[in-house]
Design a protein around this nucleic acid. Structure first.
Lengths: 245, 245
DNA sequence: TGGGTAAAAATTGTGCACAATAATCGGGAC
DNA sequence: GTCCCGATTATTGTGCACAATTTTTACCCA
């Protein structure tokens, strides 16, 4: 008899994952968030295995996990690549973020004032870190801190499920930004975050939520999500004038 | 040199997954959604491998994927179990659904009226199916159709990312319902869905969104999410009166 | 020189065997 | 009879070898 049975319910231990894979997943996610791994980068199993000092099987598992988060694209028999969201997907991701972060801000604004000291302390500490990074013009740190700021707010909102969903969306935002960021100078989000912190610590209903909406719009508007050329360009046409000239 | 390089960008083919695993994942998800697999059920690799006629490796991969969707719990060296959300997680899932489906309803209400015929047709067709299932008292079909209804609306809203997130949340809702549903008779959601369809096809701003909010509240309120006993009961105390009697 | 084909190399995919761990069974002591 | 402990069985985890596929290289011919 091979039927699926239920001999005993699982004891609810830590839902934790073994540390080895988790470490690698985190490491790659951070590298992607920091844009050290740009979209389209080939992730060869063997290379990763050596880089992390683990077996190839381990790496395969990690890549499968990352592909579920849409942060890595798995192409059968071709391998794993850092995902490059389409413009449409990028728009969807930002819309999803607006939806979820709007809800997070609503929850935060409903918290009794003043906010708990621990929360205030962490907010201001984070603000200080962002200021430091801005002064030092440490672009990498600023990117990393920017993502962490949004996750911090999600954590304060007290819904781990929403926070988890947002974490994935933030990673994908990073990829979208890396793929479609305009070359032009872009307003740094540190200022937006400062205003958000001020609005949250104060008590002006609706302001924080509005600021967050504007902030996300601003980030998305810094991208060039117009229909890419993508289609093979007609080289002949492009160089025709040179020949003719 | 083992550095990670980018020899060629991946040609954007179908992001599709091989069919074998996808089929099994779908099959198990459906079984869970239909409550044929109740929370806590042990999913032995060997049994599943035989059931689906594939190798155990294939099954392991599938279980890993399902665990990422929080629909299966993987306990190291103990195996895979159909997930049983905690009451807190259940609440979080429903809150996340409220957030996302609220956004979906907002989008749907912004669509120009009348709605496209194809959309209307599918809505009414689905309504008919739910009616049939209700008349036939086919509980399994009703459960399945109920989930599909919400996914249908998500699809109409035109954001595949949000729809994908919602799909996962619906699966987890199913698990929450299976785990915490009250024994008492519960109002069937078919009526709620009928009203939703009516509100969507009509043009009464805000009504559909409000109905959806009420609907999700109603479903969650049918659950008993109070602090479970869970802690080992004191059997001695429980049976003391019998002994004394 | 350029294109096309075939061999070679590199990379991914998969089954298998065995190790590691946990669950079960059975026996002995009290 | 029951509790505890060791042996047996069952189940999961992992490395390895090889198959399948793709990519690169080499070569020939027009």
């Amino acid at each position: 008899m091979t039927a699926i049975s239920t001999p005993k319910p699982p004891r609810r231990t830590t839902g934790g994952r073994s540390s080895a894979e988790a470490r690698i997943v985190r490491s790659i996610r951070e590298a992607i968030a920091d844009r050290r791994l740009p979209p389209g980068t080939k992730l060869t199993e063997e290379s990763l295995a050596e880089a992390f000092g683990v077996s190839r099987e381990r790496v395969r598992k990690v890549l499968l996990l990352l592909s579920q988060r849409r942060v890595v694209t798995l192409i059968p028999n071709r391998g794993a690549f850092v995902a490059k969201p389409t413009p449409e997907e990028a728009r969807e991701v930002f819309e999803a973020r607006r939806v979820i972060e709007r809800a997070i801000m609503d929850r935060l604004e409903k918290l009794p004032r003043p906010l708990p000291p621990a929360m205030l302390e962490r907010l201001h500490h984070h603000g200080a870190l962002e200021d430091d990074a801005e002064r030092a013009a440490d672009r990498q740190a600023m990117i990393r801190l920017s993502g962490q700021f949004h996750l911090l707010l999600a954590e304060f909102a007290g819904n781990a499920t929403l926070a988890g969903i947002l974490a994935d969306l933030i990673d994908r935002s990073s990829l979208a930004i890396a793929a479609y960021e305009r070359r032009t100078a872009h307003t740094c989000s540190a200022e937006d975050h400062r205003r958000l912190i001020a609005a949250l610590t104060g008590n002006t209903p609706g302001e924080a939520a509005a600021l967050m909406a504007d902030h996300l719009d601003a980030v998305e508007n810094q991208l060039d999500l117009d229909p890419q050329p993508e289609a093979p360009v007609d080289l002949k046409a492009i160089f025709a004038m040179e020949e003719a000239g």
